[in-house]
Design a protein around this nucleic acid. Structure first.
Lengths: 307, 307
DNA sequence: CCATATTACGGCATGCGTAACGATC
DNA sequence: GATCGTTACGCATGCCGTAATATGG
């Protein structure tokens, strides 16, 4: 059983069961890939791919297991390479962050800025997606670190660490009737048209739960994926916006004013997720610490767990 | 980076940093091992082993990481082979159980008997050790399934499932003063010489805690690793024995009588442990189910977690 | 008929084993 | 001086790539 063979079956699966495409992606010849897959199947004594004559048409049940384990092996090999780089190519490498729009736009910038200054030779990439995409990218090894508020903790392979907490605020034009109130209530919010996040993308289910428990039905006229879009429509007078408090900046969002809502909703926690079995480069730990200064000890402890 | 190279460094480490011994264990030549290790170190750009001239004298810090990951890769490769065997050599293979004396002697026999009847072509091996040895054998992949009452759940890599609960009983000669009592108390126990398990080997800390909370100091005259030894000394009149209730059989232990102590101590739970990332052969799941009929669904669910 | 997988075959790289050398205890 | 690791070298295995063949949509 050779590493190449595992790489080959993995790539063939990734390329939609197309050996030719896999061969091209791997910069090698088609017959080579075909041959090695046959040898692997022969050695294991089973078919990984279902064939209709000479066409690959599916993956067998054992094949599915093999592919899963092949991915694991390749991830481990990547880990080994990383250990090498960590000690021989210090502070040089790649960091891929997967996160949501809100985090990328409002929370990461300061950490990123410090990071690229501290580690000028590390190539930083930010993948953006919804929370479940973030989780799956980290789980599959496509991303090194995931940052999101929801659903990142579902996968057994992930280690999640609470990163920071945040709450919400209302944004509205300064001339809005609510703007003069000392303290906002859920009923106040319910009596005006509301614009907020798409439920799938943030702690939205939590927000809707709070309204439900209070017996208030918010009049949601529009939902959006990110705070910038929400603020735009608030500016157009379509309603008041309910957004993460870190998404409001007094100067930048000048025509709008904000009213804190921390007393109305429980805090939401944003989590940082990494694969449990990943070897974390020094700069990855540094990034995590930049983002959340008090987690590093825990993280190190967890990283060394398998010793 | 080749699989052989990982195997080689792993074996050299296992053999106490002796390349010659590793080469012999791997049925290959010394120079080959030496060469491949050098190539691996060169490729990774670091030293795995500390050398004094030409002598290996230690493992470097990155080397420790590499060895850990090499073990992981080899485990994954073993998993792949297992998938092959599972589908091509059905109900044939090896099952290694790691467990403590008490389990091996009193709880496993019926499951083992059924198992070897159901799977005559599976070679069954039982490794015996104390709970922490059981845990480490499963964690390292030396054993497939571990069964113990304590400390099996410490390692992150292990998945533990509650298997069954048990409590304790007193054994003593029929002429013993306590034998005629209707209900035993902790004070009763404290007023007679006591023989029980070595604390390190069972729920002993729990037992001592119960005595402590009750303000009773047991007069422990002897501790032993297993119930058979304890019963032997009870037969000699050295004291009364406090053992697991499943370790007493009315017929076999005829001269001795037993008094149930379930009302004095909380139940202890025996756990079954497997590596989270292990591929479990069908017969392994069957064994687990034989031992504890209602866990199989959970186990399967957990096994498939990575899909 | 085109796209795609398998078979055939020759060249080349790589790993292995034997032998010789060097160093450490 | 004995054990152990490294270097040198020749052989064999096996992988890769090109070309040719077969098969399915």
């Amino acid at each position: 059983m050779k590493l190449h063979q595992l790489k080959y079956v993995h790539e063939v699966s990734q390329q939609g069961l197309n050996i030719s495409a896999a061969a091209e992606a791997l910069h090698t010849s088609q017959p080579g890939v075909s041959k090695q897959i046959q040898l692997l199947e022969e050695e294991l004594g089973l078919q990984i791919f279902q064939r209709n004559g000479k066409r690959l048409v599916g993956i067998t049940e054992p094949g599915r297991q093999i592919l899963k384990l092949a991915a694991q092996v390749m991830f481990d090999m990547q880990n080994i390479k990383r250990v090498g780089d960590e000690f021989s190519r210090v502070e040089t490498g790649t960091l891929i962050i997967a996160t949501t729009h809100t985090q990328a736009r409002y929370k990461l910038p300061s950490a990123v800025q410090q990071f690229i200054q501290m580690f000028p030779n590390v190539k930083l990439t930010i993948h953006q997606g919804n929370p479940s995409q973030v989780a799956s990218q980290v789980a599959s090894g496509e991303a090194d670190i995931g940052i999101a508020t929801e659903s990142i903790s579902l996968d057994e392979r992930l280690l999640t660490l609470p990163c920071y907490q945040w709450n919400r605020c209302l944004v509205m034009p300064s001339y809005h009737p609510l703007a003069s109130k000392k303290s906002i209530s859920l009923v106040d919010i319910g009596s005006h048209p509301l614009i907020t996040y798409d439920f799938a993308f943030t702690g939205g289910t939590l927000v809707s739960q709070v309204f439900h428990d209070a017996g208030v039905t918010p009049n949601i006229v529009l939902t959006a994926i990110d705070a910038d879009v929400i603020k735009t429509y608030v500016n157009l007078g379509l309603g008041i916006g309910l957004i993460a408090n870190m998404a409001y900046d007094e100067k930048r969002d000048a025509p709008l004013i904000s009213l804190d809502c921390s007393h109305l909703f429980p805090d939401s926690t944003t989590y940082l997720g990494v694969r449990r079995d990943a070897f974390l480069r020094g700069y990855m730990l540094s990034f995590m610490q930049l983002l959340s200064p008090d987690i590093n000890l825990k993280a190190i402890e967890q990283t060394l767990k398998g010793t």
